[in-house]
Computed example of a mutant assay.
Amino acid sequence: MSIKNRTIFCRYQKMLESIYPAEEAKEMVYRLAEHFLGIARPQLLLLLDQAEDVELSRYIEVSAQRLLQHEPLQHVIGEVEFYGCRIKVNPKVLIPRPETEEMVDTIIKDWRGKNPRIIDFGTGSGCIPISLAKALPHSAVRSVDISGEALEIARENALLNGVDVDFVQADMRAYSDSGSYDIIVSNPPYVMDSEKEQMRDNVLRHEPHLALFVDDGNPLEFYIPIAEFASRSLAAEGAVYLEINQQLGKQTSELFAAKGMNAEVRQDMFGVDRFVVVRWK
C-alpha cells in the first residue's frame, strides 16, 4: 500500500511543531507544497490522497530543516506575494508585512485614477513603490535606499512585475531634490533597540537590522528628515503616508504639525496605532 501525500504532510507538520504552533506548522507545509508544485490551495487539496510525490517530499524535508533553524518561510521559498505583486526577498531586505500592504491599499484607494508623483523612502524589496506603480499606472515613482544590495533586488522585482521605478541610492536622512511630490511614503526603521527582546528569532537572525532598529535615544531619526523634506516638497493637495512605532504616534504627528501640517494617527487591522497620514492644513 503506497504512502499518500497527506501522510507525508502530517509527518513534516509534526516535525515543525517542535518549534512552531500546530496551525502555523501546517500552513508552512502547505505553502511549501504550493510553491514547489506551482498550484493554488484548491488544487493542492485534491492531491492529498494521491500517492506520495517523492520529489515534493524531498523538497519539503530540506525546507523543513531550514525552518527548524528559524529561517523565515519567505526566505525558504524566496518570494512573497504583496498586493498582487510577486516580490523576491532575501536576508538583505525586510520581509513585507500585512500592515505595509494595508498602507499601500489606503494610498491606492486615495489616488486611484490619478497620476501622482510619488517618492518612497526606504526601498527595501521595493514592495511599496512597485505595488503603487502597478496599481497607479500613470504615476511617476521614485524610491530611495541607502543599501545597494537592497536596490539590486528591488530593481529585479520591478522588472519581474513589469513596472518602471526610478531607484536612487542615497541616505534618506540627507536626501534632497528639486521635485514636488503628491505622495511621500515610507516604512522606515522604527523598532527601538529595547524592543528587540520582544521579537522572534527568525526576525532577529535573518532580517536586516539596518531596516528595523533605531536607537532608543533617537527613535524618530528617520521621521525628522521626512518631515523636513515634506515641508519643502509636498504638493499643495498631496499627502504623506508613514508606518510608525505604535508608541510614537503623537511624537511623529508633532514633527509635521511643527511644519504647519495636519497629521492623523490611524490604526491598523489589529487596532494598533500604526500609520500617520499628513496633509497641508
Rank of each mutant, 00 (worst) to 15 (best):
E24T: 07
E197R: 15
F167Y: 04
D105G: 15
L248W: 04
A158N: 09
L56D: 00
T123D: 10
G38E: 13
I107A: 02
F222M: 10
V93L: 13
A170D: 14
N245L: 13
S186W: 03
L151H: 12
M1A: 03
N187C: 08
L255I: 10
I153K: 05
S2L: 02
L47I: 08
P116V: 00
V76R: 00
C10D: 10
P116K: 03
V141F: 08
A236W: 11
E17G: 05
V76M: 00
P219W: 11
L73Y: 11
R112T: 15
D182P: 01
K92F: 12
A258I: 03
V278L: 03
L210G: 07
V29N: 01
E79N: 06
I244D: 04
Q247A: 15
I8R: 10
N157I: 11
N245Y: 12
G113M: 03
V76K: 01
E71R: 11
I8T: 13
D120I: 09
D193T: 05
G249S: 14
C85M: 08
R266M: 00
V62I: 09
A25S: 10
K114W: 11
V104M: 08
R232T: 08
E23P: 04
H138N: 15
D53G: 06
K196Y: 02
L248Q: 04
D164Y: 06
I87K: 13
G260P: 15
Q43H: 15
P208D: 05
Y181A: 01
V203R: 04
R274F: 11
N187Y: 05
D120C: 07
R31F: 11
P208S: 03
A135V: 06
T100N: 15
V104G: 12
A135E: 13
G238D: 10
R266S: 00
A133S: 15
Q198N: 05
D110L: 12
C10W: 02
D49Q: 02
A239M: 10
N5C: 11
L94S: 11
V163S: 02
Y190D: 06
G113V: 07
G124L: 08
F256K: 07
E243H: 07
Y175I: 03
G249I: 15
K26C: 00
Y20L: 10
F36G: 06
I3S: 03
N161P: 04
F121H: 07
A64C: 12
L210S: 07
T123M: 13
A258S: 09
E102A: 13
H206E: 09
K88H: 00
I19V: 03
A135F: 04
D201P: 00
P96F: 09
H138P: 07
S57K: 01
K88W: 09
I108D: 12
K259F: 05
A230H: 09
P137T: 11
E156T: 09
Y59E: 07
E27P: 01
A158F: 12
I60R: 04
K88N: 00
V62E: 02
A211R: 06
Y59A: 14
Q74I: 05
V165W: 08
L132T: 11
M199Y: 13
S18R: 08
L159P: 01
H209N: 10
P91Q: 07
P91K: 12
